[in-house]
């Protein structure tokens, strides 16, 4: 009398057990996979070192007297860790009152020439702005200067005139993707964008 019920129950249980076993297998293999993944990543592969590519490590402004190639003023900024590390500035030489200087710019990432390889090819997105305080320096952008945004001169070829004896500060900034730029006064001005460099040299002298 009870056999039917019993049979039914057993069948049902069997079916469920089968199902359960199947699932157990699936999970067992999943676990195995997990272990495999874990062990794969456990080998001794160390990550490779990233050397910052974008770093501008050296910015050098070399002013050369047009009348006397021996009269040179060098302003240099060195940041061994690149853009996200501490920088140190150094000034050598002094300007001579009344003299006219040509400025040669150097922007380098270790031994890579950032100015000629990256900035000048994308001159329409960059603009150099200069500023002085306390020192009688005036400047103009040369006729053969590279063309920057909106027919404005980029500011890599410039001529500087030293006035009365004075000591003060000189600032150079490079604006990336500025909104508006104006080169009408040689120092230049810009709005918007972000500064790729902004360095102030203090204690620059005209004798």
């Amino acid at each position: 009398m009870n056999t039917q019920k019993q049979n039914f129950k057993t069948m049902k249980t069997n079916y469920l057990n089968l199902n359960f076993m199947k699932t157990t297998k699936v999970f067992a293999s999943a676990l195995l996979c997990l272990t495999l993944f874990t062990s794969c990543s456990d080998d001794d592969d160390n990550p490779t070192e990233v050397l910052e590519e974008e770093l501008i490590t050296n910015v050098t402004l070399t002013f050369t007297n047009n009348a006397n190639a021996e009269d040179v003023v060098v302003l240099s900024s060195v940041a061994p860790d690149g853009q996200d590390g501490e920088s140190t500035e150094n000034v050598t030489g002094s300007f001579t009152t009344g003299a006219t200087y040509a400025l040669t710019l150097g922007l380098a990432a270790e031994d890579e020439d950032v100015l000629n390889e990256d900035i000048i090819p994308e001159a329409d997105e960059h603009f150099f702005v200069y500023a002085v305080n306390g020192i009688n320096l005036t400047m103009t952008r040369d006729n053969d200067d590279e063309m920057g945004p909106d027919e404005n001169k980029l500011g890599v070829k410039t001529t500087w005139i030293a006035g009365e004896s004075s000591t003060g500060n000189l600032q150079i900034s490079l604006i990336h993707e500025p909104e508006t730029v104006d080169d009408s006064n040689g120092f230049g001005s810009a709005t918007g964008g972000s500064e790729d460099i902004n360095i102030t040299f203090t204690g620059v002298t005209i004798n």
């Binding site: 853009q83 590390g85 902004n198």
Partner: peptide, 9 residues
């Protein structure tokens, strides 16, 4: 602060 080649941060 940190004084970098891009200005102070």
């Amino acid at each position: 602060f940190i004084k970098t080649i891009r200005g102070p941060f």
